[in-house]
Design a protein around this nucleic acid. Structure first.
Lengths: 400, 400
DNA sequence: GCGCTTCCGGTAAGCGCTTACCCCAGGCCC
DNA sequence: GGGCCTGGGGTAAGCGCTTACCGGAAGCGC
């Protein structure tokens, strides 16, 4: 009782106030709690049944013009918008897709990179790409972050029941869990592997990396190349690592790797690995290729600390080509992934899984691969003369 | 008919297949479509009524231990998770908050900054802060982006019906619309203004900016300061601009501003304004303070193009202190906003609006202000000796 | 003028949950 | 031993929508 003002919906009243907590429950009373109008309110205002209102709103069996107008006017006056949950329950479509991202796990000794959040940039750009297409289909993204290798995936399954399908960023679930999940709801993974019930979207690590290694080995003629890896169990990392090795060997260049070259995709990790290598007195390879750009940022930092000339003494390259890459000093050579496209494609694919077009063939089990290409800048040894490099170069401006 | 396998839920069957489109409708048949179990399935498996299942799941009126165990076992076996929409409809709580962000509008002449996405970094970090606390309350964020000054706000009202409350980033709605929206659902705005029905969260522009201007005018003794503004109607911009003027005048320093100093919070805008000033032959002020860091990036770029020494000839400072700031060359002096806190506070506040704690007083109409502080780096003229500046300084490393 | 087809719009069922309400045992007291 | 209370669990209503189904009113041809 005493719920909203003027809201005798005319349909069975019932408990209402019970769990309504927070709506007009506060001492403020008056001007709030005006809970949004329901379809019953509209029907009453227009003098028709709720079925007619619904039909008008959904363009079904086009009702008589006059009826339609009456309804539309009532809708406009009341500012009615149908409730998402009710609609979802009825049509069995929420028009929401769940997106699971991995929450970066800061370690103890991140030092200068402690609150370094470029990590976020990459997944966020992917999400941006998703959101962009999602708009067109009237979908929204429901975002949830989980810890690396979320123990039981419970939080992921829960998110599934709030949405029509899931897009999983890398390394948020195990393969078994993924297969199980895929059996219950449409799922698209990013930079992972397809399962019989899910589809994966990734970019072409091999081609881009091959181009980079050939550039370093052949064009620059560097005699040794090290690979500072990302998470060991990341498929992207495995592919990149294997390609570096294969191409280096093919070019007759020494490939440097090993346990002490183990990074974790973070700037802090890249810096840490570099420092330890330096401390151990090992001679660095002529060029260091990093699992991603974050790692490269860390490497650049650690080398600069030791006054090591980049690319004069050691060349450095990254992977991803995040926007910051071109603002670094020296500007970072990197393999460009179509970041936003990755997201857009993931969404497009998921949507096809959720509501397949008439003739649409089943996509499950597919591995969708997007192209990559090398972006040469200064950190690999290319000069500022390259067309790509007309960017925020503080250097040139500093010494007239 | 022929819906799922073994899914005779025992409750009225009905239409089912009608709108189920996409679930097992595809030619694939078999291994998919296994639509998730419902509470009826669990009840049948446990040999109890759905009410008991629900009670066990929600810990109500603790049922007998034996019953509870039977139910929990059935839940585990079936992997049951309640459907979000159904639950939401019933308890009138979706456990979802809508977040509206502004989609950057690329203009025609963005040049090098065309696909510059640092713009995203700031809002994304705020969202990260929200998500972090949202977790603790079992909420998820439903993200939607709108164009600057979304014409009628329809998309915002629609999002409201998919969630329990809204958090609006800056400049996505007009004040009138906002007041109307606030009457229907709990709303928190960021960097805007409070209305009688909504609360606003922002950071303390005045204090941080005051500190910056005093630093430039007093510590560095610069004789003139220009302010390259953000969107004219952004309250943040107004406050920053006013503070720059007031403090400059108070310090007896010339304040340079005017229509040709109008930026738009983007790097491209900052570069454009700077280039036009340079072309027009105007003499630049000794220091340029930017509406935000993006703008400063553009300014840095344009000045470097002209071989103007920063901070030797012109000092530059930003606002926000986004992570990239410390990787620029020279490293950018900026006023630090507690970015993630902004998001966390916004969520906390919204949650208090949605389900106020027992004694909780009404927050509506409040303007919550978070503290800021100056981060001195090189672009204002401070040397690399400053403790803050031990960061990715490519410069030092380049010339041994 | 009468049966048939259309076209409209109302009635009600059902989406998957939560919970008020009630009924049935069992235990208790006098 | 009967009335009462209590606790456990089932029944059903209701959350706000969509839509199958039906009944009434026109419109039509013969």
């Amino acid at each position: 009782m005493t719920t909203g003002t003027g809201s005798e919906t005319g349909h069975p009243a019932g408990q209402a106030a019970v769990v309504a907590a927070g709506r007009g429950a506060g001492p403020a009373g008056g001007l709030t709690g005006q809970s949004p109008p329901t379809i019953y309110d509209v029907a009453r205002a227009a003098g028709v049944s709720i079925a007619s209102v619904s039909r008008v709103l959904n363009g079904r069996r086009n009702p008589r013009e006059e009826t339609r107008d009456r309804v539309l006017q009532a809708v406009a006056e009341l500012g009615f918008v149908p409730d998402g949950a009710a609609r979802a329950l009825s049509v069995r479509l929420k028009e929401v897709v769940g997106v699971v991202v991995r929450r970066p796990q800061p370690t103890d000794d991140d030092g200068v990179f402690a609150d370094e959040d470029e990590n976020l940039q990459f997944p966020d750009m992917i999400n941006r790409g998703m959101e962009f297409v999602a708009q067109r289909y009237g979908y929204d993204l429901l975002i949830r972050s989980v810890d690396l290798h979320e123990s039981d995936g419970r939080r992921i399954f829960a998110l599934a029941r709030k949405s029509d399908g899931l897009i999983l960023h890398d390394q948020v679930i195990s393969t078994e869990q993924l297969a199980r999940l895929g059996r219950q709801v449409p799922v698209v993974t990013l930079a992972f592997v397809p399962t019989p019930t899910t589809v994966n979207v990734r970019s072409d690590n091999e081609t881009g990396m091959r181009e980079l290694i050939r550039h370093l080995a052949v064009d620059h003629g560097y005699g040794s190349i090290g690979y500072l890896s990302g998470h060991l169990d990341s498929p992207d990392n495995l592919a990149r690592s294997a390609t570096v090795r294969a191409e280096a060997e093919a070019a007759g260049v020494q490939f440097v790797n090993g346990p002490q070259w183990q990074g974790d995709y973070s700037a802090a990790g890249g810096a840490r690995v570099t420092e330890r290598l330096l401390e151990s007195g090992t001679e660095l390879p002529r060029a260091i290729v990093c699992g991603n750009d974050q790692t490269a940022i860390g490497v650049l930092y650690a080398l600069a600390q030791r006054r090591i000339d980049i690319p004069g003494q050691v060349a450095v390259a990254g992977f991803d080509d995040i926007p910051v890459a071109r603002h670094l000093n020296p500007r970072l050579t990197s393999v460009r992934q179509p970041i936003q496209d990755l997201g857009a494609t993931a969404f497009e694919t998921l949507h096809a899984l959720i509501s397949p077009a008439p003739g649409q063939q089943d996509l499950r089990g597919r591995d969708i691969v997007l192209p990559t290409r090398l972006n040469r800048r200064e950190s690999c040894g290319c000069g500022p003369g390259h067309p790509d490099s007309l960017v925020l170069a503080g250097m040139e401006g500093r010494q007239p």
